[in-house]
Design a protein around this nucleic acid. Structure first.
Length: 833
RNA sequence: GCUGGUGUGGCGGAACUGGCAGACGCGCCGGACUCAAAAUCCGGUGGCCGCAAGGCCGUGUGGGUUCGAUUCCCUCCACCAGCACCA
């Protein structure tokens, strides 16, 4: 008998699948329900390791399962091919980014094919190809027309290591997301932005549509990131300075009578005017300078002392008329709100600390609705809850909520303020001073200003020969052939934009392109997208919870407003799988702890690699890679192969009993085997449908195999038709998880045509039903015995049976039974005393 | 600090709606096969007491609800993740 030879089997079936185009998705097929299964497209760099493979194994298992369930499955793969590492490799090794990238793509494609993932390879895309990125440019131009793309000079995050601008989302605690030890600098540059803030509310509100389909955690992170907060802006006039007003943003206008100061950020635009002619100005300028150079490190911020100085100016509280000092301090952020706050020490913890240090007055204007009244002199911390307003003129006696509403109305009617909602979310800066990305399709003309490249001239191709130094400004600026052009409007000499787009542009809409990957006249045909969307299931890492997923949602809404799509959200369900770790940290090339996918396939076979990945942990949890633990699934597949190979020859031409067969005449042994089989089908089906706990699916198959082995010799006691039914079900259930071996065994059992179109086995309740149950007998809730009863025994009979059990009788001797609880087919609990 | 999540044998994990805690697997121990080893197969494997029958303890901590709690409620602890002087 032939040994299980995974490499041979895997090659054989991969060729067969390819020959038969087994995983081709059919556009617009209305005869079957569609299912769009998507895994996050990889950035082709380094080696594909088991972290990647886990992602694709999960997706592939579900894609294959859905096909067996009769769905028309779209399961595509592509490459996120633009990006910095390609450029860095080019600088370091003198290889062109395109050559480097395409080399990696080839390698990635080879490995993914070697694992036999059921992709429709005819839909493969690569974002660095002009056929793809021309649509990035096309979208950009549409957004330019709509005013969603705009240019402004702004303070931007600059990474000296990358030599480029970073989006806010790419700055992590003040450090570059790619260079964890490089502090991000602030620079003033002319940049292109996308007005994502225009969609802040919609991005927030539409999360309601995602509840249930997306992990709560991801929605929460996005909600925090958007950071909506309702409040009011209030203007304080500055005493002795006509025309200068300081606007503050507050979420607690009800506390305004307790303001002890106005505090400005060190970068506040009105500061020069304020400081003019003030005594001690030189000294203040020095302090300002030092405040501006504060560390941005998270740890420092958390422990930083409140620091600031009095400007010598006073501002008038428009409600009370009171004059309060104007300060500058380090804890006020220039980028948030108005860059100025009113300090209310009694009701804000930061203000409280600040007031303590600089001896500003603390006055209580909110009292708790219940409990002890506050006394400013005895407070150890601010009282930040809502409550009853006191010492606040006409507002005294109102609740916080009432006061907020009325005060906001007064501010508006008297013209010194208004209700205001602020967001943490900033517009998306997409300009990158880099080569390996999509050129921004814009031309600058002396006469006509900013002119979009006409659609007919797209794509603006990335020139192939450009000197890359990694230093200074955009590499494209050094190519006069590229830069110098003519203005599409006036025909005069003009210059091209030399920045390229953030690569997150590429990945914000790539999944639409899969629906129509070769369209040369549009990013996609509307009817194809209408058929396939929304994505039924997206699978990827939690690392993309904010960046990629928020941008993708934004893009979808822009596309909808451009009339390109009809839906509000592109992704119906999101699954975030856990990381694969080794030594407690995520696999990564830089840490040197990767387990290569190819090594795994060479050593154990990819089916074993897949099985282990699915078995070792439920997919949402992190998985610690263990070379030892892979032995379990490896042995399982070998034993299953041995068992089926042993029995298959005489089962080839046997017809299984079929779906509705009457099996009441089957022997007890046969019934037992069928029962275990159908219980397994029930469980595995549930795991695939409801919760994706493939680890228990694998365990179920292992148990079934064990049962089969225990019944050997199977050819003596089990009718061939029954055995065939059992083995076939087993193989069908294996198909999504270890597809190559499943195909091989399926063929051995006398089937042809491949498993991709085969039906998932039906679960039969009548066959799965137990005939006998072990009843647990508890006395006072403690396990004291077990009895075997037949199915359907009545409650009273079960009780009698339990009470007449000899051992139970002994325990009950001389005691009074208070009551008994009977759970049919499960347990009897006898309560004594 | 805020928000969310997670705590179960030596390890990965299971227990679906409150009903036998530890399925399945790894490892370990014992046995078979072998001159021997590997591979394979069979048996055992939460802790403590006991020759055994059996008993007691046990799902991070302490409490509560319940006939019965890994599961529900409260307290605290630890770890992980995201956000973080956001006004």
């Amino acid at each position: 008998m032939a040994e299980y030879d995974p490499q041979r089997i895997e090659a054989k079936w991969q060729q067969t699948w390819e020959r038969h185009d087994a995983f081709r998705a059919a556009d617009g097929d209305s005869s079957r329900p569609k299912y769009y299964m998507l895994e996050m497209l990889p950035y082709p760099s380094g080696t594909l390791h088991m972290g990647h493979m886990r992602n694709y194994t999960i997706g592939d298992a579900v894609a294959r399962y859905k096909r067996m369930r009769g769905f028309n499955v779209l399961h595509p793969m592509g490459w996120d091919a633009f990006g910095l590492p390609a450029e860095n490799a080019a600088i370091k090794n003198g290889i062109h980014p395109r050559a480097w990238t395409n080399g990696n793509i080839e390698e990635f494609r080879r490995v993914l094919r070697r694992f036999g993932f059921s992709y429709d390879w005819t839909r493969e895309i690569s974002t660095c190809e002009p056929e793809y990125y021309r649509w990035n440019q096309w979208f950009f131009l549409r957004m330019l027309e709509k005013g969603i793309a705009y240019r402004k000079k702004s303070r931007v995050n600059w990474c000296p290591q990358c030599q480029t601008v970073l989006a806010n989302e790419q700055v992590i605690e003040g450090f570059c997301w790619r260079h964890e030890t490089t502090q991000v600098e602030v620079k003033e540059l002319e940049q292109w932005f996308l007005r994502i803030t225009q969609y802040s509310d919609e991005l927030l509100d539409d999360m309601a549509q995602l509840e249930g389909g997306w992990p709560e955690r991801v929605l929460l992170m996005q909600r925090n990131w958007i950071g909506k907060s309702r409040g009011a802006k209030v203007r304080f006039s500055v005493a002795g300075l006509e025309g200068v007003a300081l606007e503050v943003f507050t979420t607690r206008i009800d506390t305004i009578y307790g303001a002890s100061a106005i505090v400005l950020s060190a970068g506040h635009p009105e500061l020069p005017k304020l400081l003019e002619g003030v005594a001690g100005r030189a000294d203040m300028e020095a302090q300002l300078k030092s405040l501006r150079q504060k560390s941005v490190k998270a740890a420092d911020i958390a422990t930083a002392e409140k620091e600031g100085f009095f400007t010598g100016r006073f501002a008038a509280n428009p409600f009370s008329g009171e004059h309060v000092p104007v300060w500058v301090a380090n804890f006020v952020l220039a980028e948030y709100g108005t860059g100025a706050v009113m300090a209310v020490p009694a009701h804000d913890q930061r203000d409280f600390e600040f007031a303590r240090k600089y001896r500003l007055p603390i006055s209580v204007v909110i009292q708790p609705l219940q409990g002890k009244a506050l006394d400013a002199g005895r407070m150890n911390e601010a009282y930040t809850e809502h409550g009853r307003v006191v010492n606040s003129g006409a507002y005294t006696g109102l609740t916080s909520d009432e006061a907020m509403e009325k005060m906001t109305a007064e501010a508006a009617s008297r013209g010194f303020g208004a209700g205001e909602t602020t967001y943490r979310l900033k517009d998306w800066g997409i300009s990158r001073q880099r080569y390996w990305g999509t050129p921004i399709p814009v031309i600058y003309c002396e006469r006509d200003g900013i002119v979009g490249v006409p659609e007919a001239e797209l794509p603006v191709r990335l020139p192939e020969e450009v000197k890359l130094t990694g230093q200074g400004q955009s590499p494209l600026a050094s190519d006069p052939q590229f830069v110098n052009t003519i203005c599409p409007k006036c025909g005069g000499a003009a210059r091209r934009e030399t920045d390229t787009m953030d690569t997150f542009m590429d990945s914000s809409w790539y999944f639409y392109r899969y629906a129509d990957p070769h369209n040369a006249t549009a990013p996609f045909a509307a009817d194809k997208v209408r058929y396939w969307f929304p994505i039924d299931q997206y699978v990827g890492g939690i690392t993309h919870a904010i960046l990629h997923l928020l941008y993708s949602r934004f893009f979808c809404k822009v596309m909808r407003d451009l009339g390109l799509v009809k839906h509000d959200e592109p992704i119906a369900r999101l699954f975030t799988q856990g990381m694969v770790q080794k030594g407690g940290v995520a696999m990564s090339k830089s840490r040197g702890n990767v387990v290569g996918a190819i090594d795994m396939a060479d050593k154990y076979g990819c089916d074993t690699g897949r099985m282990y990945t699915l078995f070792a942990a439920p997919p949402e949890k992190d998985l610690e890679w263990s070379e030892e633990a892979i032995e379990g699934p490896s042995r399982f597949l070998q034993r299953l192969h041995r068992l089926v190979t042993g029995h298959a020859p005489r089962l080839r031409d046997v017809r299984p009993p079929g779906r509705d067969a009457d099996l009441s005449q089957a022997s007890a042994k046969e019934k037992a085997l069928l029962r275990r089989t159908h219980q397994a089908i029930k469980r595995v089906t549930h795991d695939f449908e409801a919760r994706w706990h493939f680890n228990t699916s694998v365990a179920e198959l292992m148990k079934l195999l064990k049962e089969l082995e225990a019944q050997e010799p199977l050819d003596r006691d089990i009718a061939p038709a029954v055995l065939k039914e059992v083995l076939a079900s087993c193989v069908l259930m294996l198909a999504p998880m270890a597809p190559h071996l499943a195909e091989e065994l399926w063929e051995m059992l006398g089937n042809s045509g491949g498993l991709a179109r085969e039906k998932w086995p039906d679960y039969r309740e009548d066959l799965a039903r137990e005939e006998q149950f072990e009843i647990v007998i508890q006395v006072n809730g403690r396990l004291r015995g077990k009895i075997l009863v037949e199915d359907g025994l009545s409650e009273s009979e079960t009780r009698e049976r339990a009470l007449s059990d000899p051992r139970v009788k002994m325990l009950l001797d001389g005691k009074r039974v208070v009551k008994t609880i009977v759970v049919p087919n499960k347990l009897v609990n006898i309560v004594l005393q």
